[in-house]
Amino acid sequence: MSRPLLEVDHLVMNYTTEKGDVSAIQDVSFTLNEGESLGLVGESGCGKTSIAMSLLRLVAENARFDSGEIRLDGTDLLSLTDEEMRQRRWNDISMVFQGAMNAWNPVYKVGDQIREAMDLHFHPRLSNAEVEARISKLFELVGLNPAMMNRYPHEFSGGMRQRAIIAMALSCDPKIIIADEPTTALDVIVQDQILQELKKIQADLGMSIIYISHDIAVIAEVTDKIGVMYAGKLVELGSTREVFARPRHPYAFLLLSSTPSVTGPRRKLAPLEGEPPDLLNPPTGCRFHPRCPYATDQCATDEPPMEDAGDGHQVACWNWKEVPELGGLTK
């Protein structure tokens, strides 16, 4: 019923540094359908923010796309000129940056800052009155009093600033919003309010959202589909319900087993031993093998391909059949 809107196809991206190449994104593929929400979860440095930045082509200067495509509605974004890409940013894909709530310029009114973003990017040129009407509609949509658009950022609480950031991301009517750690600096109650708001807006406007977070519980709350990333690779991809019910990749399994929860039985959690690898010299074969309790000799030498584990639930692991059911490890 829904058609693919965004297709990331075998994307490979490296950062060139003095010490060598940092393998930030290694052969990542996924699709995002219209009206769908996808979560990318992983630890810091796993490449999730690099993917977000690649989708907008806002990568650092030393980033290098070595292969692969990012197709939006069939057009490869990586082949566009800078000017063509600039036209698409905000209009087709917009982003709620990590910590953006602290990036408001303190000396301008919040409404004026949104207006400026629209002046720069929004296509149908609007009159002043139309812009104003649009901003107040957006404010209502994100649960802010439209009168607040004439206030300065310091008059907003953290949660309100984040809502205004979301309003700004919506201002050019994008098809896709990328939300990079949208609630990380917020308190639990405000985080919950914002997540519910985002869910509602997504349903109302029928847009697609890519959530990026290190917090697997946040992803569980708001997404239809989830991709688990480890050290620059997508290791598991499937419907959120499937992945949480039956994680197939050992990393996803251990991540879920090591996430404390306020619900369910109080249990001993399984720690993930070791530390994430240095992406200057990633481990050979499967990048998770040095920390993996299910690793075999093959894992150290051969890179596992994405395999279908049934129902479109994909996993990149040689031994995914060995991974037990969740809860099998408890006590």
Partner: peptide
């Protein structure tokens, strides 16, 4: 825990 001790040296040294 033993692998912690064998962390690669800082590459810039």
């Amino acid at each position: 825990m033993t692998d912690l001790g064998q962390r690669a040296p800082e590459p810039d040294l």
